[in-house]
């Protein structure tokens, strides 16, 4: 049984290494065919730039800065989403208001609010957090409310028949039954947070030279440091894969998969 598991893991690792190798090989081939290093830098120069950025600490500093802001933004958004969804469940007219807010504000791109955010909060981290919370909150709230709405009536009736009501009913019946939808909301919020932060930094560079990965891409772009720019993009992709595998997959494993809600 253990051997079987280990061989499965080895196989998965082998496929990952082969996949990465194939992508690098294809990239190098394209770079050789095109022979335009500024447009399509060779894989070797991208990897060398990535290595340099990691060893001199510059990429790690930028990554740390971006991750810190994203975690604060996610934290604030989760708090607000939980609060609004609880209010929506407990007070019916509030649910209608939440849906109107979602319909009106969710389609509004965060970057469009950045000029307003700068006027309201001045430069620095506050306008970035405002844009991020706006980008994360509405899809997250929508997913939570949709999850609650799709809970079968019989679950609600069973909960009530054993004496649960109000907050206890939501915590013990609605939340566990809506976990797949809530998780989808977290995933969307996470990717929206990245997009909001990177685009804000790239468009306005509102935090000067002390910025995160968006500022890093912006400054490398203006200096035509294409290998460096691709290296930063690789870091962003790696963080995405890591969070997906280490966080979301594990939460899914100990919740929805364990409870038999999803295969």
């Amino acid at each position: 049984m253990i051997d079987n598991k280990r061989s499965k893991r080895l196989k998965s690792l082998l496929y990952t290494v082969l996949g990465i190798g194939l992508v690098i090989g294809l990239w190098q081939l394209m770079a050789l065919l095109l022979d335009q290093p500024v447009i399509f830098p060779p894989a070797a120069s991208i990897l060398s730039s990535l290595w340099q950025g990691l060893t001199d600490g510059s990429l790690l500093l930028r990554t740390g800065y971006s991750l810190r802001l994203i975690l604060i933004g996610m934290g604030l958004s989760v708090l607000l989403a939980v609060l609004l969804s609880l209010l929506s469940m407990l007070i019916r007219p509030f649910a209608k208001l939440s849906h109107i807010l979602i319909s009106a504000l969710d389609p509004l791109p965060g970057i469009a609010l950045l000029p307003v955010a700068i006027l309201w909060f001045d430069l620095g981290e506050k306008p970035l957090l405002f844009v991020m919370v706006h980008s994360i909150l509405w899809p997250m709230l929508l997913n939570i409310l949709n999850g609650f709405a799709s809970v079968p009536v019989i679950y609600d009736e069973v909960g009530r028949s054993i004496g649960l009501k109000g907050f206890h009913l939501i915590r013990s019946v609605y939340v566990p039954a809506s976990i797949p939808s809530i998780l989808a909301g977290f995933r969307t919020g996470w990717s929206r947070a990245w997009r909001a932060l990177l685009s804000s930094e790239m468009v306005y560079g509102v935090i000067g030279n002390r910025g995160g990965l968006g500022w890093d891409i912006y400054s490398k772009k203006v200096y035509l440091d294409m290998p460096g720019m691709f290296a930063t993009l690789i870091v962003i992709m790696l963080i995405g894969i890591f969070i997906e595998k280490a966080l979301f997959d594990n939460i899914e494993r100990v919740t929805v998969k364990k409870w038999g809600m999803r295969i």
């Binding site: 430069l123 306005y204 560079g205 935090i207 000067g208 030279n209 912006y218």
Partner: peptide
Amino acid sequence: LDENLVAM
């Protein structure tokens, strides 16, 4: 003044 710059 690199740290003070903002692109606008």
